[in-house]
Computed example of a mutant assay.
Amino acid sequence: MGERGEGVTGLRIDEQADRVVAMLDRPEKRNAIDVDLVQALHELCAELEARPRLLLLTGGAEGIFAGGADIGQLRERDRLDALAAINSAVFTRIRALPMPTVVAVDGPALGGGAELAYACDLRVCTSRAFFGQPEVRLGILAGAGATHRLPALVGEARAKELLFTGRRVDAAEALRIGLVNQVVTEPAELLPAAHALLDEVAKGSALALRLTKLAVDAPAAAHPHLDLVSQAVLFEDEEKHRRMTDFLERRSRS
C-alpha cells in the first residue's frame, strides 16, 4: 500500500487496502490524455486485472479532470494511428476491469476526458464540472467510446444531440439525464463522496460484485444464460453461505 508517483507519465497511484486511487497529473496540459498517460493507464489496468480491486479515478489538479486528448499529438495522427485505437483500447480495458470503478470529476471533462469518465462504472462530480464532445468541430468524431457509451447512459436522441453539436453539459443537467450518479456542491466534498460510494460498493461480496458487473456489461444475447451460470457459481460460494447465515442470525435476535 501507499502512494507512488509516476511523474513522467502524468499518473499518480495511491494503493489502499481495498482500492486503488489513480490521479491524472498533467496540470500544465489540463490533464490532456497523451500517449504516455495512455501507457500508464494500461499498466494500471494490468495491475488491477492481476489483482482485482476497486478503482477511484480522478483529476489531480483542482478544477480540472481532463481537457481531452492532447491536440498537438492528435493533429499529427494518421489513419493507421486511428486504426490502432490508441485511446479507445485503454478505455475499453478500463470498462472491462473485474471490479467496479468510480470516477470523480471536478471541472472540465471534454472529448477524450469525457470518454474516460464514461468508461468507468459510476460517476461523481462537483457542481462546477461539465462534459462535452467537441470532436466534430475539430473535424473528427468521438472515437474512443462516446458513440456507444453515451447513448447507453443518456439515450440515443440525447446522445446524438450532444455528439452532433458539441454542446457542453453542466453538472445539474448531467445528473438530470443520468450521465452522473451524484453531484456535490464543494470541490472538497468530491473525493469523500467518491470514497463513500466505493465504501457502499465494498460491502458486497467481491465475487458477487465481479459477476454482477460481468452480467450487466454483457450483450443482451448472453442473458439469461450468463445470469444462471453466475448464480450457480455464487450459490456454491462459502461467502454466500456466511453472509446469509449472518443475516438470519441478526434477524432472529431483533
Rank of each mutant, 00 (worst) to 15 (best):
Q73F: 00
L226G: 13
A208S: 12
I177R: 04
E6P: 11
A188C: 14
T58C: 12
D106P: 03
E236L: 14
L55I: 03
T245F: 04
L116Y: 00
H223L: 14
G60H: 02
I140K: 00
R253T: 10
A152W: 00
D217R: 10
K203H: 12
C45H: 04
T58P: 10
I94W: 02
A50E: 04
V201S: 00
R79W: 03
L179W: 01
S254H: 12
G107C: 06
L138Q: 09
I71M: 10
P27L: 03
A171K: 05
A82V: 13
T147V: 14
T101R: 12
L54Q: 09
M23F: 08
L163I: 14
D237Y: 08
L163T: 04
A117W: 01
F247Q: 13
L228F: 06
E249N: 10
P98Q: 01
P192N: 00
V124R: 03
V21D: 02
A194Y: 05
R251L: 14
E47D: 14
T126N: 02
L122H: 12
R75S: 07
A17Y: 15
F131P: 07
S127H: 03
V136W: 02
R167E: 15
L197E: 01
L228R: 13
E3G: 14
A232C: 05
R19C: 10
L163S: 12
A114Y: 00
L190Q: 09
E6L: 15
G72T: 03
G166M: 04
A193K: 07
G107V: 07
L116Q: 01
R12A: 13
F235G: 04
V233A: 08
E43R: 15
R242H: 05
L54S: 10
V169G: 13
A144W: 02
A221Q: 10
F235T: 15
A196C: 05
V124C: 06
T9Q: 12
G112H: 08
S230I: 02
R51C: 09
G139D: 08
D217F: 11
V90L: 05
I13T: 11
P27M: 09
V20T: 15
H241S: 09
L48H: 13
P27I: 07
G60L: 05
K203S: 05
L57I: 01
A104L: 09
A50D: 12
R77E: 13
E115I: 03
A82G: 00
G132M: 10
V20E: 08
L150H: 06
L80R: 11
N87M: 09
L214S: 14
A196K: 06
F130R: 13
G113H: 06
A220Y: 08
G2L: 07
A174P: 07
A109M: 01
T212G: 09
G59Q: 02
R95L: 07
L44R: 01
I33Y: 05
Q133G: 04
L41G: 11
L48M: 05
V136T: 15
R53M: 05
D70N: 06
G111M: 03
R4C: 04
E200W: 00
T185S: 15
P192W: 00
T92D: 13
T185Y: 06
Q16M: 09
K203P: 09
T9R: 15
G10I: 06
E15Q: 15
L162S: 02
D246H: 12
